[in-house]
């Protein structure tokens, strides 16, 4: 049984003639340790689908089931948000260890585990800083560290690099690639960047413009552990072109609608 099963999920907002179908009859499965990318034009419902998986939003119909036979402590799913969403009055380590604090873990252990996670992202030196003292990229790293500390069954990432500059973005992509490979995390990653999806994903679910449906499921053939330099290979660029062909019409449609 796959770790996560999304079964005929439909999400709609509003009623009557103004009813807006954001996600239309989507079915997907995610295996343990898999990195699945949800790729689509803006407004295609990919973030909405992620919110349904996380339980932040209820589906109109259909269901999401998580296989919980394998017993473990901790949370089922945790979100990495588009904005870092750090608490401004808390030091970085106290932000990162929030999930432990909520579970009543003592402070010394909390900070220790926060620093471990911050080390993985290369910002352990900033543990005692406040969020406003950090750059956008570092804040986003802290947001990722917070999700790692919470150690969920499944990590949900909602365009986590959309708000950082191009170079930082590249560095963060490489970091997430290495981290998720090393830690064998199950991840659903929402993005509108084809390159990002190809670099990070084991599979890519390409979504159509609203109402969001799965238009194609693409297996990404690049072996793991993956080297970030694959983006320069001809095969990568071919795949990028192929996906763009799938998406071009959808992106144009999405733009006309908004």
């Amino acid at each position: 049984m796959p770790l996560l099963t999304i079964d005929h999920v439909t999400v709609a907002f509003g009623n009557g003639p103004r009813k807006l179908v954001a996600v239309d009859d989507v079915s997907l499965t995610v295996e343990r340790g898999e990195f699945l990318c949800l790729l689509g034009p803006s407004g295609c419902g990919k973030s909405t689908l992620l919110k349904v998986v996380s339980g932040l939003l209820a589906a109109h119909s259909g269901r999401v089931t998580l296989d919980t036979q394998e017993r473990r402590d901790g949370l089922e799913s945790v979100m990495v948000w588009q904005e870092p969403t750090l608490i401004p009055w808390r030091r970085i380590d106290d932000n990162v260890a929030l999930s432990l604090e909520l579970r009543g873990v003592p402070r010394a252990e909390r900070r220790e585990r926060a620093v471990e996670a911050l080390k993985l992202l290369g910002i352990a030196d900033f543990a005692a800083y406040f969020p406003r003292q950090l750059s956008g990229g570092m804040r986003q790293r802290a947001g990722i560290a917070r999700a790692l500390v919470a150690d969920p069954r499944i990590l949900l990432m909602d365009e986590p690099f959309a708000a950082v500059d191009a170079q930082t973005r590249r560095i963060l992509q490489e970091q997430v690639l290495m981290l998720t490979q090393d830690l064998h995390k199950t991840v659903i990653f929402v993005t509108h960047s084809i390159e990002e999806a190809l670099l990070l994903g084991d599979r890519i679910a390409v979504m159509s413009a609203r109402p969001g449906r799965i238009k194609a499921l693409i297996e990404v053939e690049f072996p793991r552990p993956r080297d970030p330099h694959i983006v320069r290979t001809a095969r990568f660029q071919d795949l990028e072109e192929h996906i763009w062909d799938l998406l071009r019409g959808e992106a144009a449609r999405a733009e006309l609608e908004t």
């Binding site: 932040l56 949370l75 945790v78 979100m79 904005e83 969403t85 929030l98 999930s99 909520l102 919470a150």
Partner: peptide
């Protein structure tokens, strides 16, 4: 910031914890 309570809930906070923290 409405995202902060959502973040805290997502990471395991109870309603009471969202208020106090």
């Amino acid at each position: 910031d409405p995202n902060l309570p959502a973040m805290a809930r997502n990471i395991g906070a109870s309603r009471l914890q969202v208020m106090t923290k």
